[in-house]
Write a protein that binds this DNA or RNA. Sequence first.
DNA 1: TTGAACTTTCAGAATAAATTGAAACACGCA
DNA 2: TGCGTGTTTCAATTTATTCTGAAAGTTCAA
Lengths: 229, 229
Amino acid sequence: MDAADRPHHTFAVGSTARDNSTGREARPLVEAQDRFVAAWGQMGSVWGISRTMAEVHALLYITGEPMCTDDVMERLRISRGNASMSLRALVDWGIVARANKRGDRKEYFRAEQDVWTMARAIVRQRIKREIDPMLAGLYEIRDMTRPDAKPARRTDRDPVAEHHRRLDALVDLTITLQRASQMFVSSKGSGLRAAASMLGSAVFDQPSKGASTTRSGPRARSEPGGENP
Amino acid sequence: MDAADRPHHTFAVGSTARDNSTGREARPLVEAQDRFVAAWGQMGSVWGISRTMAEVHALLYITGEPMCTDDVMERLRISRGNASMSLRALVDWGIVARANKRGDRKEYFRAEQDVWTMARAIVRQRIKREIDPMLAGLYEIRDMTRPDAKPARRTDRDPVAEHHRRLDALVDLTITLQRASQMFVSSKGSGLRAAASMLGSAVFDQPSKGASTTRSGPRARSEPGGENP
DNA sequence: TTGAACTTTCAGAATAAATTGAAACACGCA
DNA sequence: TGCGTGTTTCAATTTATTCTGAAAGTTCAA
């Protein structure tokens, strides 16, 4: 189940085999581009953005050319509305920029070409859209039950206390993830790689007992582990 | 639009307010649990697993109790089939374990209670299901076009060369992500946090100018086992 | 081997999400 | 102002995903 899934994309190439400095390699190149577009689209649907939006991004990235709405519509065979929405969303995410060609009133769009900059923009958005709200939710839920003034009849097996402990553990995990991500976002160059190669395989780990539950305070930093696929 | 979305879950509590050592705090506790279940379910759909699967996991985690299929069905008001599938998937992911109660033929399930262990299991699966296949795909696509023996008429503006450069940059990013994730997976304790606090804020980044694109050769260690989600 | 107690499967139904296309909307210019 | 060009919106529709529930499958004790 790869590219064979959406035949209309995979082969939508035909007429689009446009001019290349050397006309020669054109067809295979375009086919490879389409394959990439399809693959990236799949990936997109796995990480929660619409398949089309990911495809539009893939197209802009892999060709490197600024394109206007019509170019995208034609190449991807999608409707004007869809193309417009997807482009706008990509601009919102900060991985595609508007660009104007002089003497042409149309708006063109070009994808960020540096993959690390792109990755940072994506992580930034995910912090904002996923991590932050999750954290807010966890706090709110935790506060639905009072820690219960009296430390429970018998100290053992207090369900509410355990419930709080579990939420706190999750809060702790989430905060760490948030900080690590923020650090990556504010890094320069290929931040993650530098960080990763620094840590010998040995450095990881530490006991880690009592989770920190308190809302703020400077702490961890590192790579977005498996965070943002 | 928070919990108000799915009224049937948010209020499915009624009869379920079961015995707690102290019957007192029961209702608020159960409500907080349901709220957590709903929140975690939302999150799940963002990261590509089904809402129900995430809800089942949330329930098992937040109660800390081993539960059988019927318990889950009743509490979440879902069908037997759905409960069964979700539980199995969670076991596959390695974040829920089967457990048996003596003198009871039913199968019980309990969620991993250590959040870091849980996070590692999740990252492990995502490497396998998302990163590895993506990497395999990128290599395959890159190989669709030959690097073109002759170094191009004019050295500048060779579309195929640029195409390769872009794919290589992505490969590089993906491999780094893969390695960082693998490192997290094989860490102990609260790996990420420990690692994070090690690196001063300064270490990040490195010039990384012309994108270290030359990766080529080594096929990385993906597991193109052909299988995907 | 039989059958009660559980679990898994899967076709169809229900639900959710993405897409289209045409109308409404901006903008700059003669 | 009125017009041509280009962009955005959104109700209706199409497509994809998830859920149900009953039937089929397992397992084990007797």
